[in-house]
Simulated scan of single mutants.
Amino acid sequence: MNAIAVFKNRWLAFLMLLPTLVVLGLFLYYPALETLRLSLYRANFVFQTETFVGLAQFQQLLTDPAYYQSLLQTVIFCALVVFLGLAFGLSLAILANQPIHGAAVYRSLLLYPYALSPAIAGTLWLFMFNPEVGLVNNILRTLFGIAPRWLDNPILAFTLVVFAAVWKNIGYNLAFYTAALQNLPGELLEAAALDGATPWQRFRYVTLPLLSPITFFLFFVNLTYAVFDTFSLVDILTAGGPTLGKTGITTFLIYRVYQDGFQNFQTGFAAAQAILMLIMVGGITVLQFRVGRRVNYGA
């Protein structure tokens, strides 16, 4: 019979938890409550002014066409980053998992982008796609006589940010998919091959279903990354522009919070946007738990 550790003094347990509770209180709970409070005030961080307006800022956001444009752009951006990130990550993992000489070296090189900070990754892409001296335009100018203005054209700028975000996170997807592929039960794949299944059929009906748990996990990790962790890429590459319609084509929700809070100094308005994003994240979390019940974790 296993012994269960019990604190003789119950206050000792709280004392040991105190450092963690203090850190959580200062850096998580207090900022969250302060954001909720500020969302009800028309506040200016620079002039230290606050005027209670209740839910007026939420009403303003929900009737603002520019906000809905940013929301739509964020949804499209997230969908592309998640789909392309998982597709490229799995494809590269399958190629890197082949029994070839130097496969470990190839896998290490493919993991390299994830080791970079988002700021460094954004700077690399900014230099590569510089319309005047960038490597990409130099090649295009030499081969085809063209030099696209990548950061001035809304469609090109949006596409550039999408592929920069995918490239930055592809090493993460590759690492998990490679580990999952190496742990697949080989007897199932061998049985399918003996039954006459083609390589595509083995992938579609055996490999892909067995990878569903890791795909489910990576889907939500990539979604969180696309929503919150691409700020530096956007800031360095496009700064939310170029303008299309009511706002910048790459002014996603997280970047809009930054613009209103730290550039326009509308602290309360930015807090209201942060609360709406928190509600969206809560909805995604609920969806994650509901969908997770349908994922097959069996062999």
Rank of each mutant, 00 (worst) to 15 (best):
L143D: 09
V136A: 10
P131E: 00
P131T: 01
I155T: 13
M128V: 05
I155A: 10
L156R: 00
V162T: 15
K168F: 14
T142P: 13
R149Q: 13
A175Q: 09
Y172D: 06
I155E: 00
L160W: 03
I139S: 06
A165F: 13
A157K: 03
I170E: 00
V136P: 00
V162D: 15
L140Y: 07
L160N: 03
P131D: 00
A179H: 14
G171C: 12
P131A: 00
V133C: 00
L140V: 08
A180I: 15
N173K: 11
F176C: 07
G171M: 10
L140G: 06
A157Q: 14
A165I: 14
A164S: 13
P131H: 00
I170P: 06
K168V: 04
L151A: 02
N138L: 10
G145M: 07
L140M: 10
N130T: 04
D152Y: 08
A165W: 15
L160T: 01
I155W: 10
E132R: 14
D152Q: 08
I170W: 05
N173S: 06
L156C: 05
F158K: 05
A179T: 10
Y172S: 10
G134P: 12
F158H: 08
L160K: 09
G145H: 13
V166K: 05
P148S: 08
E132V: 09
R141H: 09
W167M: 07
V166F: 10
P148W: 02
I170K: 09
Y177P: 15
G171F: 12
I170A: 01
M128W: 04
I139L: 04
I146L: 04
V133S: 04
W150I: 01
A164C: 13
G134N: 02
A180T: 15
L174N: 11
P154F: 13
N173A: 02
Y177D: 07
F176Y: 11
N153I: 07
F176W: 12
R141M: 01
Y177N: 08
A165T: 14
L135G: 12
P154L: 14
P148L: 06
V161M: 13
L174H: 14
F158A: 05
I139H: 02
K168S: 12
F158Y: 14
T178W: 06
R149F: 14
V133H: 06
D152F: 12
N153P: 15
T159M: 00
N169M: 08
N130V: 02
T178C: 10
M128I: 06
